[in-house]
Amino acid sequence: MNAINPNASGGRLVGATPLPSQRLTIAGEASPAKDAGSFKNLLLDSIENVNGMQQQADQAVEALFTGGDVNPAEVLTAVQKADMAFRLTMQVRNKLMDVYREIQDVRI
């Protein structure tokens, strides 16, 4: 879970989940070479990123309602980012399902 640090300057949200392209591997960390660039991993990383945004937005709203020192504009921005990411994820899912159905209908 991402934590909100109300003591940060201006009540900024802390601990945002990095994008898959921003993640760095630790030296000596074991990572499977054959699955490094797979479509499956790309989808899983994207879903984790969207989930992280939603959790961050939930925590920001909770901090705002409980009287935490959080900037309301930043809470609104976090909620809108999470909503936009979720909508985009749903559109990608819908397109993938359409492609899957189209492939199923192909006669060999």
Rank of each mutant, 00 (worst) to 15 (best):
M1Q: 08
M90P: 04
G28Y: 00
A85Y: 02
Q55L: 12
D105Q: 11
M53I: 04
V106Q: 09
E29I: 02
I47R: 13
A27R: 05
V79Y: 00
Q54I: 14
N5P: 03
G68S: 01
A73P: 05
Q91K: 14
T89I: 07
A57C: 08
L42V: 12
E62C: 04
S21Q: 10
I47S: 15
S31R: 05
R87M: 11
G52Y: 04
K95F: 02
V99M: 01
V79L: 06
R87L: 09
S21A: 06
K34N: 14
P72A: 00
Q80S: 13
A82V: 08
T89M: 15
F86I: 05
K81Y: 08
E74S: 10
Q55E: 15
D69E: 11
T77S: 13
I108C: 05
Q22A: 13
D45F: 01
A33N: 09
L96M: 09
G37Q: 11
E62W: 01
I103R: 13
A63W: 00
A30E: 12
K40I: 10
G15A: 04
R23W: 01
M1A: 14
P18W: 00
G10F: 03
I108Q: 14
N71K: 05
L13C: 07
D105P: 03
A16L: 12
N51S: 12
S21N: 07
E102L: 05
A16D: 10
A36I: 03
L88K: 13
N5Q: 07
G52V: 10
Q91A: 14
A27Y: 00
R101G: 07
L24D: 03
Q54E: 11
A60W: 00
Q91D: 15
L13K: 11
D35C: 07
A78S: 15
I4W: 04
S31H: 09
D69T: 09
G10M: 06
A3H: 13
L88Q: 12
D105G: 15
K81N: 14
A36L: 06
F65R: 15
G15L: 03
N41Y: 00
M84D: 15
S21G: 10
V79I: 08
D58P: 07
R23P: 01
G11D: 03
M97V: 10
D69P: 01
N7I: 03
L13V: 02
M90I: 11
L42A: 15
L19H: 04
R107W: 07
P18L: 00
V106A: 07
P72D: 02
S46V: 02
L88G: 06
L44S: 08
I103A: 15
N5C: 08
L42P: 03
R107E: 15
V79G: 03
F39M: 12
A60S: 04
I26A: 05
V50S: 06
K95G: 07
Q56R: 04
E62P: 03
S46E: 11
N2T: 12
G15K: 03
Q59Y: 02
G68P: 00
A3N: 11
T25W: 00
I103G: 14
D58T: 13
E48H: 10
I4Q: 06
K95Q: 15
L96V: 09
S21T: 06
S38D: 06
A85H: 04
D35H: 03
R12N: 13
D105V: 01
L76P: 04
S46N: 13
L42M: 07
R23S: 03
